[in-house]
């Protein structure tokens, strides 16, 4: 009977713990983002074909040219990608070198998208099968990675870039330049 008592109070304790867990989870917004495990690792080898006329494609070698870069994963069919366009322009104005990876996209759609929302990219590679996206550990569009001059991934921003995210990204870019 004593064992039963102890077991029961243990059960009560477990239930209290459970409720505490529920309360904690309930009190904070649900974070559905999946972080890449590739941060701190070199970018995987890839070579993406150009997707708009007159703009070079993107290879992993381009990311090892000594200059830190913003690697922006986007698509013309993605609504938040359009929303972050002004912030990308602002980052470019601050001297960021932005390279793009267009996910599952057609050349004419990308061209129209750039015409409409602005074009901050120095290079754009077309990733028709999300290969680079998967290889770099990105789980959606848009996402932005900071890659240092040696081709090491230093930082990942998930979702569209908001106005308040710009200073942090610039700071991370500076850190990557050191």
């Amino acid at each position: 009977m004593r064992n039963l008592r102890i077991g029961l109070w243990a059960l009560v304790a477990v239930v209290i713990g459970l409720f505490a867990l529920f309360a904690i989870q309930l009190s904070r917004p649900k974070d559905d983002s999946v972080e890449s495990r590739m941060i701190g690792k070199p970018v995987p080898e890839f070579a993406l074909k150009p997707i708009v006329a007159g703009r070079p494609g993107l290879t992993s070698a381009d990311l090892k040219d000594g200059q830190p870069k913003l690697l922006n994963i986007f698509a013309s069919w993605c609504v938040p990608c359009a929303a972050e366009a002004p912030q990308l322009a602002e980052l470019e104005a601050h001297g960021a070198d932005i390279v793009g990876v267009a996910i599952r996209d057609r050349p004419e759609d990308v061209a129209r998208f750039l015409d409409f929302y602005g074009d901050p990219y120095s290079r754009i590679g077309g990733d028709d099968l999300s290969e680079v996206q998967i290889d770099i550990g990105s789980s959606g569009v848009p996402e932005t990675f900071i890659v240092d001059g040696k081709g090491t991934i230093r930082y990942q921003h998930i979702g569209d870039i908001r106005e308040d995210d710009v200073p942090l990204l610039l700071q991370k870019l500076n850190e990557a330049a050191k």
């Binding site: 008592r5 029961l8 059960l11 009560v12 409720f19 309930l26």
Partner: peptide, 23 residues
């Protein structure tokens, strides 16, 4: 949050009652 409060109230009360009375 409301359902959680109800949950804690009902289950907590019943379990404690049970732990007290089970013997």
């Amino acid at each position: 949050g409301f359902i959680l409060a109800l949950l804690a109230l009902y289950i907590g009360a019943a379990l404690i009652l049970f732990a007290l009375r089970a013997g």
